[in-house]
């Protein structure tokens, strides 16, 4: 039997959050964490969490699994369970709406801040803006982000200053547009980030790199932004 502890909180009925224990027979199968949650929900329909695609594409079921942020749907028990115990908590640092569901407003606000869309002030071509295969390759490792928030909510700098530090997810996207050959707003983008918080609150501890379910490297992207800021300012 797998012992599962789940963070439970219903603001309508509970005065404070608590951990609820379940015993689950996995029949020896190496299930995904999301499968475990589905089985628990059959048993206890009040258990609440977000999910959608169940294959690591939508980014809905980011949560703290045995102390490490990850997507429940692509994290097998064999990868996270130690001592036959599974502890599930909501993503750290964000307000909890209910059980494993967090309020991601501040995370999205930081994403919006980096203006995550192409900006180009040259006349639009007749068909489309072309990009060489080499320039396109510069976006690899950046565009794949699914905004699951596993990285930003594992970052202490984001915990302490979620309103001022853009966070690894937002900064990865900031660099995705800074690196795009079709974008002409480089200077304006950089000007908005040259303060002691937006970029520079990153101290390079690489929690973001350790948890990213897509294997991306926000710390490296932040390093590129810092170099661009340095180049612009010196």
């Amino acid at each position: 039997m797998l012992k599962v502890e789940v963070y439970r909180y219903n603001p309508d009925t509970d005065s404070k959050p608590s951990m609820k224990s379940y015993d689950l027979d996995t029949q020896g199968k190496d299930l995904m964490v999301l499968d475990v949650l589905e089985m628990l929900k059959d048993e206890d329909p009040s258990l609440t969490y977000r999910r959608s695609c169940r294959e690591g594409v939508c980014g809905s079921d980011g949560m703290n699994i045995n102390g490490k942020n990850g997507l429940a749907c692509i994290t097998p028990l064999s990868e996270c369970v130690k001592g036959n115990k599974l502890v599930l908590r909501p993503l750290p640092g964000l307000p909890v709406i209910r059980d494993l569901i967090v309020d991601m407003s501040i995370f999205y606000a930081q994403y919006a801040k980096v203006e995550p869309y192409l900006q180009n002030n040259t006349p639009a071509p007749a068909i489309e803006r072309l990009q060489s295969p080499e320039d396109r390759a510069k976006l690899d490792g950046l565009y794949e982000c699914i905004l699951c928030a596993c990285c930003s909510t594992s970052c202490p700098s984001f915990w302490w200053n979620p309103e001022k530090f853009i966070g690894p997810a937002g900064l990865l996207q900031a660099y995705r547009f800074l690196a795009d050959s079709r974008d002409t707003a480089e200077n304006e983008r950089l000007a908005k980030m040259d303060d002691p918080f937006s970029v520079f609150r990153c101290h390079g501890i690489q929690n973001c790199v350790a948890v990213c379910p897509k294997g991306l490297n926000p710390t490296r992207a932040i390093g590129h932004i810092r170099n661009m800021l340095l180049q612009r300012a010196t």
């Binding site: 040259d194 303060d195 002691p196 918080f197 520079f200 340095l230 300012a233 010196t234």
Partner: peptide
């Protein structure tokens, strides 16, 4: 842009470089 007036150089790059 986040405003800060109590840091050393008013700018993130400046503080970082110093």
């Amino acid at each position: 842009m986040v405003t800060a007036v109590t840091n050393l150089g008013r700018s993130g790059v400046y503080d970082w470089l110093i």
